[in-house]
């Protein structure tokens, strides 16, 4: 692990904190490395009943790192790694609680959709504005369709529009809406404390059956949807659009 992600254990709750706030917790190679390592540690820790995923800074997660995609051609690999993370969160023995305090965009929204209980503050936003980059958000679909339902998944994945936390709650992507960031942290504290007091086997089996009911226990669902995303990622179109977006971002920010 590196310092982009912090992992803490406290009384049955593991907390993963995305801590690359200068880059809005974008999913870069190093961020994926750190996140995967943290989740691997949680996977082998039987005493963990709850995984809390939170973030530092203004954004929860801004999605894939644009530079790595434009300059290093990392998009196909990132899609694979994101698909793997979503699946592992869904299969995890612990209940996954998302604490979304700001924008959760594209890959960030995919991570949120893989959570079991999603808390958000009013400044959280959600969505997949990635078609303009030539990227398909299909990688998110198994958990998004399973959780928010077919209609909401279609709207989010095809429109490219961001929705606010209230709308996301209405769509079933967010389950608890806090009045502000401070209230959010308190609500998630309380939620994790309660969850950690429950019988581990009972919660694990309940989660497993819910995975069965919403079909997220099917490997082929994750595989085929990932194929769809990766296929478009390998087209020259994606490359060209990413390059253009990256250049325009650099011109805008002077970096």
């Amino acid at each position: 692990m590196n310092d982009l992600v912090a992992l803490d254990f406290d009384a049955g709750t593991a907390t993963i904190t995305l801590a690359d706030q200068n880059r809005r917790n974008a999913l870069s190679t190093v961020m994926f490395d750190a996140l995967e390592a943290a989740i691997a540690t949680v996977e082998t820790n039987d005493a963990t009943k709850v995984l809390r995923l939170r973030a530092e800074g203004s954004a929860f997660c801004a999605g894939f790192d644009l530079r790595a995609m434009a300059e290093e051609g990392m998009l196909p690999e990132f899609l694979n790694r994101l698909g793997g993370l979503c699946r592992r969160l869904r299969e995890l023995h612990a209940v996954v609680v998302m604490e979304v305090q700001g924008p959760a965009i594209a890959g960030g929204c995919a991570l949120v959709s893989a959570g079991d209980i999603v808390h958000a503050s009013p400044d959280a936003t959600f969505g997949y504005p990635v078609h303009r980059l030539g990227i398909s958000p299909a990688v998110s679909l198994p958990t998004l369709m399973g959780g928010a339902g077919f209609g909401a998944a279609r709207r989010l994945a095809l429109s490219g529009q961001l929705v606010d936390a209230r709308t996301a709650r209405h769509l079933g992507l967010v389950h608890r809406l806090a009045s502000d960031r401070e209230a959010l942290a308190l609500a998630v504290d309380e939620s994790c404390r309660r969850l950690a007091s429950f019988d581990a086997t009972c919660v694990r089996e309940t989660k497993r059956y819910l995975n069965h009911l919403d079909l997220t226990d099917r490997e082929e669902g994750f595989d085929s949807t990932l194929d769809a995303s990766v296929k478009t990622a390998r087209l020259p179109e994606a490359d060209r659009r990413l390059r253009a977006a990256y250049d325009s971002m650099r011109a805008r920010t002077g970096r």
């Binding site: 079991d116 209980i117 399973g146 959780g147 389950h175 309660r194 819910l210 009911l213 919403d214």
Partner: peptide, 25 residues
């Protein structure tokens, strides 16, 4: 374990909200 009541809750409020409700108790 509330698995016995899960199917009809999923059908009523959708799988994601049902997941959150049943796991949070």
């Amino acid at each position: 374990c509330p698995a016995v009541v899960a199917p009809f809750l999923v059908k009523r409020i959708g799988a994601g909200p049902a997941r959150a409700m049943l796991l949070a108790g």
